[in-house]
């Protein structure tokens, strides 16, 4: 769908055609908003009704609806409440203020990116080792799988405390928790990718008596690139989740996790939802960036599109 849009000459571009092509996307978004508003009404109606009853006020249905859309502490905030909260908390304070959501987002994003980089590199190295030393696959893989079965909420405080004891605080321990979560899909995907060349392509290397490093650089690595990007897309979101989770159990002062935590302490549901939406936007942007790099790389490597 998007491909054909790109292929069209600029002169043929018509707004109606663009809308037609993207109609499914708009439809889905519209349905989501309708469901969200409906949920906000249904979930908040009891507390609004109770409030009216407590004050012994007669109310109409439209007053009830208005009440559910403007509740101070809604069970489910309405979309426009979240939007207003997002706007206020990003543009209402200076950027370095701890009340600014963008500041918290930056704290989490930097831990995410560093953790993602560490995890991706570690995952790739692990995959290269596993592919070249078959014995490692049997001896190492069970431990790798075990590592992913331990709940991260249990591990995270331990890592923070251990690093804190040796004087390392702030970004790095959070990144380690991110990396701990996100190396796994990269390692699994890259083992698959590095073993993806055809037997004939490997035989060719053998007929040229290429050494293992050459086979890796000139065959296994380029063959694994599509697998790499697929894994990176999965692991970048996991990395963000890891950074947020790392902020939860440790009483972090800054970050989206800290924002979620303080929101739940003070019953600020709108603030929680705004932080969640913010995290979702960050994840979407990160994935879109990886997608863009993947497309550029694919074009450079002769992909047919």
């Amino acid at each position: 769908m998007t491909n054909s849009a790109v292929a069209l000459p600029r002169a043929n571009w018509r707004p109606t055609a663009w809308v037609g092509e993207h109609a499914p996307i708009f439809t889905v978004v519209a349905v989501l908003f309708v469901v969200w508003y409906l949920a906000a009404f249904l979930m908040n109606a009891p507390q609004v009704r109770d409030a009216f009853a407590r004050n012994e006020v007669k109310y109409t249905f439209s007053e009830l609806v208005a009440g559910t859309m403007e509740a101070k502490r809604p069970v489910v905030p309405a979309p426009h409440q979240v939007a207003i909260e997002l706007y206020d908390s990003i543009f209402g304070y200076p950027l370095n203020s701890p009340r600014n959501l963008a500041y918290h987002a930056w704290v989490t994003l930097s831990a995410t990116v560093v953790g993602f980089a560490i995890g991706a590199i570690f995952g790739i190295l692990l995959a290269i080792l596993i592919v070249h030393l078959r014995t490692l696959e049997k001896s190492l893989l069970p431990w790798i799988i075990c590592s992913q079965m331990v709940p991260i909420l249990a591990i995270a405080p331990i890592i923070i405390v251990v690093f804190g004891a040796i004087g390392i605080r702030g970004l790095f321990p959070k990144s380690i928790i991110s990396a701990y979560l996100c190396f796994f899909p990269v390692a699994i995907g890259m083992v698959k990718g590095l073993t993806s060349p055809d037997p004939i392509q490997l035989d060719l290397m053998r007929t040229w008596s290429a050494n293992k490093l050459q086979v890796l650089r000139k065959l296994r690595w380029p063959a694994s690139i599509p697998f790499l990007f697929a894994s990176l897309k999965v692991s970048v979101t996991i990395s963000l989740v890891g950074a947020i989770v790392a902020e939860l159990p440790t009483g972090a002062q800054a970050g989206i996790g800290a924002r979620l935590l303080s929101g739940s302490y003070y019953g600020q549901t709108v603030q929680i939802w705004a932080a969640l939406v913010c995290a979702a936007v960050i994840a979407t942007v990160l994935i879109a960036m990886i997608d863009a790099i993947a497309k550029l790389t694919a074009r450079h490597m002769g992909a047919a599109t």
Binding site: D198, I200, Q201, D203, L204, M205, T207, W208, S209, A210, Q214, K218, L219, P222, A223, I225, M301, G302
Partner: peptide, 30 residues
């Protein structure tokens, strides 16, 4: 090991991410 033969398989088995010239130059690189 002395690279005394060239092997041509049933399938061309060109590396799809390399242009024709870079495919032909691959054994020379190695």
């Amino acid at each position: 090991l002395k690279r005394q033969y060239g092997y041509i398989f049933q399938a061309p088995a060109l590396y799809p991410w390399r242009t024709i010239e870079r495919n032909v130059m691959l054994p020379l690189e190695i």
